[in-house]
């Protein structure tokens, strides 16, 4: 198998992991937006925007997940940027609440999510790494193909 193909396969696998994780999170949040608004408000970070976030964020996640898995390359990079930005914001919010000693549900997967702590932070760092790696592999595959 040519190396460019391996890069593409690796990128696809990573995109599937990230895309499916976010798609699952989005569907679970869409099922109970009121609970998600409550969880978002509990972070006490611009709580007046909690409803707006609960209404729009799950569908943004779902749209970006679909593009990341199925979209053409340039659009996949756009979706990667969306997820990169979201993960930085999510991780900062969780770390802030955790550092303040507040024990609350992370809201990462809607109602019934785990409490904030090291696990959601590590998971987000893992997802962010996967996105960066997928982007890098795509770039390498493109370079390999243009070279051959």
């Amino acid at each position: 198998m040519p190396q460019s193909r391996l890069y593409q396969l690796g990128s696809l696998l990573l995109r599937l992991v990230v895309g499916c994780t976010f798609a699952l999170a989005a569907v679970l949040k869409l099922r109970d937006p009121a609970a998600f608004a409550e969880q978002t408000g509990n972070y006490q970070f611009l709580p007046e925007l909690a409803n707006y976030v609960a209404i729009t964020l799950p569908s943004v996640e779902l749209a970006a997940a679909l593009v990341l898995i199925l979209g053409p390359r340039l659009w996949r990079q756009g979706a990667s940027l969306v997820f990169g930005g979201l993960l930085v914001v999510f991780t900062s919010a969780i770390a802030r609440a955790w550092a303040m000693g507040i024990n609350l549900e992370c809201g990462c997967f809607g109602a019934g999510s785990t409490s904030i702590g090291p696990w959601p932070i590590l998971r987000n760092v893992g997802l962010l790494t996967a996105i960066l790696l997928a982007w890098r592999l795509e770039q390498r595959a493109k370079l390999r193909m243009s070279a051959s």
Binding site: V60, A64, V67, G78, L81, G85
Partner: peptide, 8 residues
């Protein structure tokens, strides 16, 4: 990628 992200 940025403007595509904005569209998404």
């Amino acid at each position: 990628a940025g403007w595509r992200a904005a569209v998404i």
